[in-house]
């Protein structure tokens, strides 16, 4: 008995660690954002994302064409609910996105600085501009109809009213160089007018977009209104450009693929946005970002008799 006790005591002494082990850092898994949830790619693939100087930042999900298909289904399902909200309510929700983004300003400054390799100062400017851009489009949401619509004078006893309506599901290829401000500048105008979006994030700098998805998910934005895919633009874009259930295509981040994608989009008569020259994201955004994905409905209503 006594011997046993002694042996046990010695064993305990040997197992005693020299010092407290360092805490393991809990790292975030960057996944897709589809239908309001954060799934991995159905393909199970991922790819390493590095900073411009070659430092490994994280692994991002490498979305497949089936993820693109699922994202379109989610965007289509969300469309009726989103377009059915009042423009005023959509504006409120976009403003809420700005509030949530402002609250996580420091986190986004770090992410943008790491992704672009720039200094903190320019990253701060970019994050502030991104917050302001959400506010900008939140304001536009219930005013675009007054600008893009009209009461038309016609030679007959009719009220003749033209109102803009959203096209439907818009596939957006986000700009490759500017991972946050550029991303916000292409997504916000699409959803402000009532469209839903499937967005392919910047291939080399996708991380801020996925962190932004966390903001969208907590801003009363219904699931499926914005769906974000990360991966190879060349793999995902052709599927989205040819998809018959996609109504609009923004080729901002398409690079050399743009002409080919525009051709393939023509088969299903998509609204296509192909900005030339490359936009300056710091400048005041053109109204065309919204009007390109709107259809005009004109109503004739008899007066009197």
């Amino acid at each position: 008995m006594g011997k046993d006790d002694k042996t046990r005591g010695r064993a305990r002494a040997v197992r005693e660690p020299a010092a407290q082990p360092a805490r393991l850092v809990v790292r975030k898994t960057y996944k897709l954002y589809v239908k309001g949830a954060f799934p991995r790619s159905e393909s199970g693939r991922s790819y390493p994302v590095t900073s411009p100087d070659g430092r490994h930042l994280a692994n991002a999900a490498l979305a497949s064409r089936k993820d693109a298909r699922d994202a379109v289904v989610a965007a289509r399902a969300a469309f009726a609910g989103w377009v059915g909200r009042t423009a005023y309510n959509r504006g409120q929700i976009l403003y809420r996105v700005a509030e949530m983004l402002e609250g996580r300003r420091a986190q986004f400054v770090d992410e943008v600085a790491a992704a672009t390799g720039g200094d903190r100062r320019s990253a701060e400017t970019a994050v502030d501009a991104a917050v302001d851009r959400w506010v900008h489009y939140a304001g536009w949401s219930d005013k675009i109809a007054q600008v893009a619509g009209a009461a038309n004078p016609v030679s007959g006893p009719y009220f003749n009213l033209s109102t803009p309506e959203p096209s439907g599901v818009v596939a957006v290829l986000a700009p490759q160089d500017d991972p946050l401000l550029g991303f916000v500048s292409v997504v916000a105008p699409v959803i402000a007018t009532g469209n839903t979006a499937v967005v392919v994030a910047s291939e080399e700098r996708p991380l801020p977009a996925i962190t932004l998805a966390e903001v969208l998910a907590t801003s009363d934005l219904p699931g499926g209104v914005v769906n974000i895919l990360t991966g190879r633009t060349a793999e995902l874009a052709p599927t989205l450009a040819a998809h018959a259930d996609v109504n609009g295509l923004d080729l901002t981040g398409a690079g050399g693929l743009a002409a080919e994608l525009e051709q393939s989009a023509a088969a299903t008569l998509k609204r296509v946005m192909r900005p030339r020259p490359a936009p300056d994201w710091a400048a005041k955004p053109p109204i065309e970002r919204m009007t390109r994905f709107l259809e005009t409905k004109t109503v004739w209503h008899p007066i009197g008799v």
Binding site: A242, H243, A244, D245, V246, A267
Partner: peptide, 8 residues
């Protein structure tokens, strides 16, 4: 080879 849509 192209995804179809219910509009058609």
């Amino acid at each position: 080879g192209v995804y179809a849509g219910p509009d058609y």
